[in-house]
Design a protein around this nucleic acid. Structure first.
Length: 572
RNA sequence: CGGGGCGUGGCGCAGCCUGGUAGCGCACCUGCCUUGGGUGCAGGGGGUCGGAGGUUCGAAUCCUCUCGCCCCGACCA
């Protein structure tokens, strides 16, 4: 591609809208432009990178035995009514009506549509297993789109859905997809970790996220410093900590704490460390009220609470419920003397705690001397808290380190959640109807681009790994008005292109400095510079984007060298 | 949805407090110069100051409403 002809508007200044590095660099490099909140144009350079990732995904999904389909972006509400998600998905579902007032949504994910397809066209166990995938724009009317491509309202996703006659086969495919995802992200040259994850709104029972490690990541993950265990903090199992020193229960004493509601406030007011407190949180799950206790310095994981309760979701109880159950305004709840039948759950870290402080279920009063065994013996002891650095690994003697990650992919074991709702059955070998077991597997394609840049850049710009690079090499004649430089560059451009190398040819009549700055910003892995110095000995300069210095290569050899490097670094 | 901030040529900004008819850098166009890390000189084009209403002789500037965008908290690929 000739740069003089390419729509490649690089920017010297960073548009004010951008905050994180990937967003800034994509704007500056002329890859994307914002059209509306969370909605972007892809310019030619951006599209080239997008296609690279898509290609890797297609190759690996096909290799894994999946088949590509293309489902509609616009989905009829009826299917979503059938699964129950028309109501449940909430405002994130971008809804529209056609001219006849019939309701549709722009698909945020496609379990309903694919399950509908399969229930209509797959009748026999002999046609299974089947894994269908697509690469398509998805729409989620996010509360808070952010960070450019990291969280858009329209974004490109690879989504795959597999269907099986039994659990064992679905498990097999889960593993197959897990390994396929490893290959995909390995080929994208990303530093990532698969971590155990919550199943979220999509539903299901087993899930891993693929997290690209990056400071700017929105997710917090913990990984064991001794074994392979890694998980999202909201999901991570926590091994047994040191039990609190056994102490004789002390008697309960009310402490007036006027207006002190949060742990921080009461802790400061009473001059006691937060870990001596019991945080009492009221949740509603469906129509039952649950009281959850965690230690004052810990945070409750709603994902874990949800799992423990086996409900699709939990919400903090409204003020009126808190007052009805505790008899006190919000801020003074405690485990002692709750009214009515409520389910009481306590985090493991509270087992055996003595001389703790909690709310007294009276306005402006806390109580000290609380003892777990004496004062809430009926509480179910469960894992409720968000993991932190230093927590004990559930699998070994190691401890957790905390990292931030960008979730670029997730695999789910879905089970029969959708097949049951949509009545997707097949006949098995005995002629009996079986509800299909399902798995689903997503990759945020556009988010992967952002993640790749977060991980591969320097002060001058992007540093593409070869497999994702929009061009393998940029050819820069220092001065196009010089006859020999120009013709040499033209020749190399033609020869490299003929050999299958993707070349950006900077044929613009610009100063060398401008060209070098743009080349660094765009970040092609290789640069060939054609200038007077090397040309004197019939050579050009070959430089890697990762390196400062160039090496002189005879003109006669440079094509072979570049071809060899590109081949080596794009090998599947 | 709550809290904070910002809307002035393509991008980055000044001007607003203290009303007087729009400016700077970059980019863009023309010409000459220059050609190894965002070159120099000269000339030039481009802006309903986010929108609507109001105050005023006069509004980018003051007031009201509204729309958009960004950041911080509850969601997810």
């Amino acid at each position: 591609m000739r740069q003089s002809k390419m729509l490649l508007p690089t920017l010297r200044d960073v548009p004010a809208e951008a905050e994180v590095i990937s967003h800034k660099l994509m704007l500056r490099a002329g890859m994307i432009r914002q059209v509306a909140r969370g909605i972007y144009d892809f310019l030619p350079l951006g599209v080239r990178v997008l296609r690279k990732i898509e290609r890797i995904i297609r190759e690996e999904m096909d290799r894994a035995g999946a088949q590509e389909v293309l489902l509609p972006a616009i989905c009829p509400s009826e299917l979503w009514q059938e699964s129950g998600r028309w109501e449940k998905y909430g405002k994130e579902l971008l809804r529209i009506k056609d001219r006849n007032d019939r309701e549709f949504c722009f698909g945020p994910t496609h379990e309903e549509v694919i399950t509908d397809l399969v229930r209509r066209d797959v009748r026999s166990y002999r046609e299974l297993p089947i894994n269908l995938y697509q690469i398509q724009s998805k729409f989620r009317d996010e509360v808070r789109p952010r960070f450019g491509l990291m969280r858009g309202r329209e974004f490109i996703m690879k989504d795959a859905y597999s269907f099986h006659v039994d659990r064992a086969d679905c498990d097999r495919e889960y593993e197959n997809m897990f390994q396929t995802y490893r290959r995909i992200f390995d080929r994208c040259a990303l530093a990532y970790r698969p971590v155990e994850a919550d199943t979220g709104a999509i539903g299901g029972s087993r899930s891993h996220e693929f997290q690209v490690l990056a400071e700017s990541g929105e997710d917090a993950i913990v990984s064991c410093n001794a074994c392979e265990y890694a998980a999202n903090v909201e999901k991570a199992g926590i091994g047994d900590g040191t039990p609190p020193a056994a102490a004789e229960p002390t008697s309960l004493v009310d402490v007036p704490t006027p207006g002190q509601r949060t742990i921080e406030e009461v802790s400061a007011f009473m001059k006691m460390k937060p870990h001596r407190f019991i945080k009492t949180l009221l949740y509603v799950a469906g129509d039952t009220v649950v009281v959850a206790l965690v230690r004052g310095d810990h945070a409750l994981s709603e994902a874990k609470l949800k799992d423990v309760l086996g409900t699709p979701g939990v919400e903090l109880a409204p003020e009126s419920t808190v007052e009805a159950v505790t008899g006190a305004p919000v801020g003074f709840a405690g485990p002692i003397g709750l009214k009515g039948k409520v389910r009481l759950l306590a985090d493991h870290a509270l087992a055996g705690i003595t001389a703790a402080v909690s709310g007294a279920n009276k306005a402006d009063v806390h109580v000290k001397g609380v003892s777990a065994s004496r004062d809430f013996p009926n509480a179910e002891m469960v894992d409720l808290r968000i993991a932190r650095a230093g927590d004990r690994c559930p699998r070994c003697e190691g401890t957790f380190v905390l990292q931030r990650g960008i979730e670029v992919g997730q695999v789910f074991y879905l089970g029969t959640k959708y097949s049951e709702a949509l009545k997707a059955n097949v006949l098995d070998g005995e002629g009996k109807e079986r509800v299909l077991e399902m798995g689903c597997y997503g990759i945020g394609v556009t988010r992967t681009i952002a993640a790749a840049i977060e991980q591969n850049h320097d002060d001058a710009g992007i540093i593409w790994p070869m497999p994702l690079a929009p061009f393998h090499v940029v050819v820069v004649p220092v001065n196009v008005t010089d006859e020999r430089m120009r013709t040499t560059a033209e020749r190399l451009y033609a020869e490299l292109t003929a050999r299958g190398v993707e070349v950006l040819f900077d044929d613009r009549d610009e100063r060398p400095g401008v060209k070098f700055k743009d080349a660094d910003l765009i970040g092609c892995p290789l640069r060939i510079t054609i200038g007077p110095r090397a040309l004197e000995h019939d050579a050009v300069e070959l430089k890697r984007r990762t390196e400062k210095a160039a090496t002189e290569v005879p003109i006669a050899d440079v094509v072979e060298q570049v071809v060899a490097i590109v081949k080596a670094e794009t090998a599947a």
